[in-house]
Design a protein around this nucleic acid. Sequence first.
DNA 1: GAGAGTGGTCGAATCGATTCGACGGAGCCA
DNA 2: TGGCTCCGTCGAATCGATTCGACCACTCTC
Lengths: 349, 349
Amino acid sequence: MSTRRATISDVAREAGVSPSTASVVFSGKTPVSDATRSRVLDAAAALGYTGPDPRAASLRRGRSGIVGVVFEEHLGTAFLDPVKTLMMDGLADAVAPLGAGLLLLRDQESVGAGATLTTAPLDAAVLVGCSGLLRESLAAVRARGIPVIVIEGDAGVDVPRIGLDNREAQRQAASHLRSLGHSRVAIVALPIRAGWSRDWIPGDAEITIDVTRERLAGARDVYPDAATYAAAGSFIDEGLAAGRAIFADPAKRPTAVIAQSDLLAAGVIRAAEEAGLGVPQDVSVTGFDGIVVDGLAPYELTTLVQPAAEKGRAAGEAVAAMLDGGEGASISFTCVFREGNTTAPAPAE
Amino acid sequence: MSTRRATISDVAREAGVSPSTASVVFSGKTPVSDATRSRVLDAAAALGYTGPDPRAASLRRGRSGIVGVVFEEHLGTAFLDPVKTLMMDGLADAVAPLGAGLLLLRDQESVGAGATLTTAPLDAAVLVGCSGLLRESLAAVRARGIPVIVIEGDAGVDVPRIGLDNREAQRQAASHLRSLGHSRVAIVALPIRAGWSRDWIPGDAEITIDVTRERLAGARDVYPDAATYAAAGSFIDEGLAAGRAIFADPAKRPTAVIAQSDLLAAGVIRAAEEAGLGVPQDVSVTGFDGIVVDGLAPYELTTLVQPAAEKGRAAGEAVAAMLDGGEGASISFTCVFREGNTTAPAPAE
DNA sequence: GAGAGTGGTCGAATCGATTCGACGGAGCCA
DNA sequence: TGGCTCCGTCGAATCGATTCGACCACTCTC
């Protein structure tokens, strides 16, 4: 049938009230008498009206109930990272009270591609990282008065950000190793730039990914000359490959490895086992993130626990505050050092 | 300043054209002379107009460019599952040409919670699984004429679904084991219902989760009496726990284990190693999903490769078709058996 | 009994853009 | 030069709901 769907005016007419009253019955913003309410509800049922059209409502109220989350990488890749997953979780929790949902957006603006920062009906946007590509659409979004916040990235001075004390935290782990007497230490870093393939990097390599750079700086604050191998991503298999490279030459084996993520650390541990090295007797390994690494038992990583879910939650709360007309404040989170059973005093020479 | 943001009418006035013409400049739906176009664009720039308001546009066009993805579980949990992640990826790809994005929705309708199926401006909805809870909101959504499709679940006869030949596929794996001469076989199943804690289950246990039931049926088609241990989720650690339970009694050790997911299988393999059993010499293990299990090398699971990304893509395409006025058709995908190095002939007694 | 307060309902304006048929003028061919 | 087509622009209606002040009929209170 070609009869178009019922609108709230139809319902109002059917119930013999004005559209405004009918609207109020559904939104509950104003008291309505029980008699009226049930008349309207009955009329709605009779007409098959299932509530106000969200599109029209969002136009009128100026709110869509949608918070965009923008990732730099392919969606599938983003969710492979447990830290991001946790963060999303916290974010989802924090925006729920706003009655908002999370819209997944990709950073790329390729032609004919999906919803973008500029075309989606967003109330706010949360950037996870921030590449150059993003910058221009960002301007448009901000011009429109949409609150923007960035997690682990830099989107310009006036965009509030949620950060982490990466350098300080990593320094803590390194200090821990030094206090255990380790002097020959290797570092397994995260990728140093987009599209990076695993390899050793020189001490003065240019590093465009903030997290990598900061954590590396922290490690080098303690071990300025530590050999560094940068992986192609945060995966156990990458850590394994890095570990193999590191333990390849028995003569140059370090007594400790600082990995920039727990997954990398897990791989390094496996490589150590492969090489016949005991963890932590022969080699100590530290991670970063404090996530649960599935399948790592019985090891418990010595690592830096970062409040991943909290970061997401904080972003959500900042968004809420900005939507309320407040100022978005930058927040920096602190990692907590957690000693597991993967670090021990350096073996006697 | 309290000057409200510029609208397209403001731009039109500034440029000395009608609003309709200005609109057309931005949408590109109708040819416009170059002179007019640049006048409008200049006016827009002068006024700081950054393009049509998506809210208003979506009201008028009747499309929001948003496809809702509804999960049964907590978001964080959903993304822990590599199969779902892949599926999301495929889905994202398939809806991109529609100019649509993915809105994450949770199944729960708790009070004051976030965006819901009924309050979000959706063009279509994709359900991942379908619990009872969902059913009612589903009715409202469908009444509104929004296409709905379900992946791995049952939302009623008239909701098209994307399925998998779980039973047939699992039977294939079991047959493979039988052809290798295995007769003492154990099964490690996925959870049999929501909130399940790992434990052995009797042969006649009631199973409310479709995937689990179907795969189990496939395995039992070949090994009707196989002891079955149901895990609490699809994780390596769960597989490890299950494996320990299975290999606990040396007298009753099976020579093969059918795991309902690759992650479970990985855990089982680890448990076997722990128990001093070689894989595949002493015990064969099969998985299900065909994902890349990070850190499982050098093993290559004998498993059933399911087209996870394809499922998502198919869902997206079905949505596109339905949005085009077509009928949404149910599709069933087929798994491909892949022999790795985790199965071998049964050891001699 | 008059004035103040109150709970509920109504009207009308508004949110901002899109779309479709109409229309005016320019170019083309005979 | 007259009729015809085609292109670009314009007007006006429309998408569906929300909101705010006005208003009305009562009920308290003194």
